[in-house]
């Protein structure tokens, strides 16, 4: 400890939120450090552009900071923050259709570098299929794109998605399944790989 003052980084989340609401910038900074990865990852899942995702993530935290007085801890802070992030991403998707096109070449490059065990032809083949899937995802209706991003890209549970989107678990279930079916319908015959074993 430093003169009886506990370092913000060791405080629990409730205390950090309480201090942030009281105007403690250092406490809010700790919350930013804890959640920036998740918020950025969500933004990147929608945009596939590092700079745009960074800007979106910053705007999410600015909105969260301005709305801190309204946070009542009925849901967890992470859920609340995710909700702001999803709503902000939705607004972005509505306004900026040019970011709904195929993923950037930078993202393709990063993807290629990380897959080392495949032959060049296999890698190129996979990247083509990945681009095709991303393009189809970008053309889905917004509600399907959001739920696929939260579940299949971010890996959130059904319960977390239900809290973030304020939907019943049954609605999450049916919407996710419709979204996956729609995505598959858009990709019918375009991925060029034969079906195989069930693998279950």
């Amino acid at each position: 400890m430093d003169g009886g003052r506990i370092k913000c980084s060791y405080m629990d989340e409730k205390e950090l939120i309480r201090r942030s609401q009281a105007g403690d910038g250092e406490a809010f900074g700790v919350l930013v450090d804890r959640y920036k990865g998740k918020v950025f990852s969500l933004a990147y899942g929608f945009t596939r552009d590092r700079a745009v995702a960074d800007d979106l993530a910053q705007e999410v935290f600015i909105k969260a900071y301005c709305s801190l007085p309204k946070f009542k801890a009925e849901s967890g802070f992470g859920t609340w923050l995710y909700r702001i992030a999803v709503n902000h991403a939705r607004d972005f998707l509505r306004k900026d259709r040019r970011h709904q096109k195929e993923i950037s070449m930078d993202a393709v490059g990063e993807a290629i570098l990380s897959v080392e065990s495949q032959s060049l032809e296999e890698k190129q083949d996979e990247e083509e299929r990945r681009k095709t899937v991303q393009a189809a995802l970008a053309r889905l209706p917004e509600k399907y794109r959001v739920i696929l991003t939260l579940r299949d890209i971010e890996g959130l549970s059904y319960e977390e998605i239900s809290r973030i989107l304020k939907l019943s678990p049954g609605t999450v279930d049916s919407r996710l399944h419709r979204a996956r079916r729609k995505l598959r319908e858009k990709l019918m015959g375009r991925l060029g790989r034969p079906g195989g074993e069930n693998g279950l």
């Binding site: 990865g37 590092r50 960074d54 993807a111 990380s114 995802l137 995505l183 991925l191 079906g195």
Partner: peptide, 26 residues
């Protein structure tokens, strides 16, 4: 069976292989 394989492949391709970090000094 074919449908199942397609769904698994699509979900695999939907996930980005790597998520970059935010820009420096976030």
């Amino acid at each position: 069976r074919k449908k199942g394989a397609e769904y698994r492949m699509i979900l695999d391709l939907v996930r980005p292989q790597s998520v970059p970090e935010p820009l420096p000094r976030f």
